[in-house]
Simulated assay, not measured.
Amino acid sequence: MLAAAAVSINPDDPLAGLVVGDQPEPVVPEGWTTVTVRAAALNHHDLFSLRGVGLPPERLPMILGCDAAGVSADGDEVIVHAVIGDPARGGGDETLDPKRTLLSELHPGTLAERIAVPRGNLVPKPAALSWEEAACLPTAWLTAYRMVVNRAGLPAGGGGTLLVQGAGGGVSTAALVIGKAAGHTVFVTSRGESKRRRALELGADLAVESGARLPKRVDAVIETVGAATWSHSVRSLRPGGRIVCSGATSGPNPPAELNRIFFLQLSVIGSTMGTRGELADLVELLDHTGTRPLIDDVRPLTDARASFERLADGEVFGKLVLTP
């Protein structure tokens, strides 16, 4: 079957190890099932894998991809939850499972015509969501949903203030849209004028250059950039506010800002992916509100390298989708 796979690791030139071609059909363990993929989406996780982050050479070749929507072996239209927990753990929050893994780390990923997943990882796809829209949800959108709705401490009925650092990235774009759907005031930052303009078109209440002063301090910050924006995030919070962090694309070791953090009683909260239940809640939110993921580009799986090149270049606003 056709798939996009990592066949070698290269930290400096990740795309050197990407091959789009024939790969073996999925093996289906007990308790798992197959899904015929109708659409899959790229994430920076795929580039990290090609650099060897979380993917050692002895597991190669490995089919890449965490996000997919398709048709199950039972004929149901489904969205795939990418977090694979330890079956021996017996339930609970799978993101806290020390043995958790994502599709494409230990088990083949979603950038293929067919995949194998645990039956419990399937979420029904509403008819109102297209295949391409549904495929955007399991990683970036689920990460953003958990950060905004369940980790940021914002009022459940709306009315909070939220700063999203780095407009344009998959998680940050999703956080902006989800924040507005949940009824909050959302400020965003970006170095690029075109990305600030796009953010305003998506509903941002204010879009400013990275590091610019905000009109008021916010209740929470969605932080995925790291070192480059950390000081601004800390200084943008009201007393008692929260930074919710799920990434550090500009570097993982920002200035501590400990004096301000303890004096203003700020909270720094880590967040990783989301549970299958949170994915189901996200799908329900989108189905109920009519909110939809922003898609930058859709290409056939045969043209996956071009999408990977765009992802590596960083000039993307929204999700990159591939269709087998």
Rank of each mutant, 00 (worst) to 15 (best):
residue 1 M to F: 01
residue 8 S to F: 09
residue 10 N to C: 13
residue 11 P to R: 08
residue 13 D to I: 14
residue 17 G to A: 14
residue 21 G to K: 04
residue 26 P to Q: 05
residue 29 P to C: 03
residue 32 W to T: 12
residue 38 R to L: 00
residue 40 A to M: 04
residue 42 L to Q: 10
residue 43 N to M: 12
residue 48 F to W: 13
residue 49 S to F: 11
residue 51 R to C: 13
residue 52 G to P: 03
residue 60 L to C: 06
residue 63 I to Y: 02
residue 68 A to V: 06
residue 72 S to Y: 05
residue 72 S to L: 01
residue 72 S to N: 04
residue 73 A to H: 09
residue 75 G to L: 06
residue 78 V to R: 00
residue 81 H to D: 01
residue 85 G to I: 10
residue 87 P to H: 03
residue 92 G to V: 02
residue 93 D to T: 00
residue 96 L to C: 04
residue 102 L to P: 14
residue 103 L to F: 03
residue 103 L to T: 08
residue 107 H to S: 09
residue 110 T to L: 04
residue 113 E to C: 05
residue 118 P to S: 04
residue 120 G to I: 08
residue 121 N to F: 00
residue 122 L to G: 01
residue 129 L to W: 01
residue 136 C to G: 07
residue 138 P to C: 04
residue 139 T to M: 07
residue 146 R to E: 00
residue 156 A to P: 12
residue 158 G to S: 09
residue 158 G to F: 07
residue 158 G to T: 09
residue 162 L to N: 11
residue 171 V to R: 12
residue 174 A to G: 13
residue 174 A to W: 10
residue 180 K to A: 04
residue 181 A to S: 08
residue 182 A to N: 08
residue 184 H to K: 09
residue 191 R to C: 10
residue 212 A to K: 05
residue 220 A to I: 11
residue 222 I to T: 06
residue 226 G to P: 15
residue 231 S to D: 10
residue 234 V to R: 00
residue 244 V to K: 12
residue 246 S to V: 12
residue 255 P to H: 08
residue 258 L to D: 07
residue 262 F to D: 03
residue 264 L to M: 12
residue 266 L to V: 13
residue 267 S to E: 14
residue 268 V to L: 15
residue 268 V to Y: 02
residue 274 G to P: 01
residue 276 R to D: 00
residue 283 V to H: 06
residue 289 T to S: 11
residue 293 P to F: 10
residue 294 L to D: 08
residue 295 I to A: 11
residue 297 D to L: 11
residue 299 R to W: 12
residue 301 L to C: 08
residue 302 T to F: 00
residue 309 E to F: 01
residue 314 G to S: 14
